[in-house]
Design a protein around this nucleic acid. Sequence first.
RNA 1: CGGGGCGUGGCGCAGCCUGGUCAGCGCGCUUGGUUCGGGACCAAGAGGUCGGGGGUUCAAAUCCCCCCGCCCCGACCA
Length: 569
Amino acid sequence: MRFSKAFIPTMKESPADAEIPSHKLLVRAGFIRKKASGLYDILPLGTMVIRKIERIIREEMDRAGAQEVILPIMHPAELWIESGRWEVYGKEMIKFKDRHGRDYALGPTAEEMITDLVRKEVKSYKDLPLNLYQIGRKFRDEIRPRFGLMRAREFIMKDAYSFHASDEDAEREYWNMYETYSRIFSRMGLEFRAVEADTGEIGGKFSHEFMVIADTGESSLVFCEKCGYAASTEKAEQLKPEEPKGRDKEFKSIEKVATPGIKRIEEVSDFLNVPPQKVLKLLIYVVDGKPVAVAIRGDREVEEAKLKAVFRGSEVRLATDEEIEKFTGQPKGYLSPVGLKLPVYADFTVIPMVNFVAGAGEEGYHLINVNWGRDFEVKEFVDVARVVGGDPCPRCGSPLVEKRGIEVGHIFKLGTKYSEAMGATFVDESGEEKPLVMGCYGIGVTRVMAAAVEQNYDENGIIWPVEIAPFEVIVIPVNVKREEVMGLAEEIYEELKKAGVDVLIDDRNARPGFKFKDADLIGIPVQVIVGKKAQEGIVELKVRKTGERREVEKSCIIEEIHNLLQDLR
RNA sequence: CGGGGCGUGGCGCAGCCUGGUCAGCGCGCUUGGUUCGGGACCAAGAGGUCGGGGGUUCAAAUCCCCCCGCCCCGACCA
């Protein structure tokens, strides 16, 4: 590709509406342009990156035994009504009517579409298992699209769906996809973690999110460097502490102290001069309309996703002030587990607590030297606290590391949710009709592009991993008017092309500094600078990532570049 | 949806409070020339319904009303 002919509109300044690095840089470097909120044009460079990402995904999915299909983007409403999701998916789905008044949606995901296809064609266990995938556009009318490609309303996704005769086989495929995804993201040169994820209403342990590690990530995760445990903080478990032996021997007598106007944990902690870890926080939640009292150590936070899982609720929220009064008869800010009308569920963090502070159940007073078991009963110890970095690993006890991540992939064992709703059945070996067992597996292709930038950039621009870089090499003739410079540059360019290297030549009649800036900005991994020593047949190789430069004699350029690219992979 | 901010040539912005001499700057673009290893310089140019509509006024980018678009934030006192 010749830069002079290519559509690569770079710019010096970041667009005013871009916030995060990937958004700014992808726009500045000419990979994308915004069309409207959450909608982007993907320019030639961006398209090249997307194609490379897709190619890796295709190769690995095919290798794993999946087969590619292309399903309509327009989804007939009937299928969504059948699965019960027409209403549930609600506002996020873009719905419209055709000229006959029939309802359709632009597909946000394709469980219904694929299940419909498979239920019509698959009748016997002999046709199973089956894993079908597609790479295409998805539409989600997000409440608030943001961060460029990170949360767009139209995006490219690879979605795969597998069908099985048994739970065991679905599980086997789940782990097959787990391995496949790990290979895919490794090949892309990304630092990632597969974390145990919250499974929402479906339940079970079979859901992993693949997170690209980046400070700007929307979700947080913890992992153990020793045993490999990794989980989203929406899911991460706590190591259950032992109840200290003889803790009752330490019990002091409970006392009521005046704490006028002191409500918040920090205020209480300051006022009574005790660390927040010695204060009990009591929260009233409403789980599917019913009040639940949850006690937790004062410095910790409740992870609502975990709470939801523990109480198997579909809707969890904090109680309002009025509800608190109604449910407990106590004033907000001074809630006490002692004498509480509701059963107290206590987080694991409460187990080791002794002689702690709690509200007194009346305005302006707290209790000190409170002890569970003596002063109030704990109905059950539950694991609802949000795990943070430094907490012990639930598997091996080593300290966990906490990082932020961008979710680029998600694998899920669906079970029979859709097959039952939509009557997708098969006949097994004994002639019995059963629902198909399903799994689904997604990768956000456009998001991978953004995440790769988010993880790989510096003050000068993007630094693409070789495997997904739009070009592997850029040849920069420093002065296109000097024959020996241009001649050598062209020669190298042709040779690299012949050698199968993706190469761009910056044949623009521009000053060198300008070209260097652009080359850094668009992030091509290896730069070949043809300049001063062209006459002697010597060029300079520069590695974008490290800034390392070395002079190379013309005859060994191809070999040197191959080695460099190999090292960078 | 609630809260905040923004909308002025392709991009980044100033001007708005205190209406008039306010259509401006930098970058980019065109032409000519000089330059040529880290976003050059000189000269001459082109390019704008000041988001849209309505209103106030002798006069509106500027004040008022409505609409549209874009960005950011949105639980954790129990």
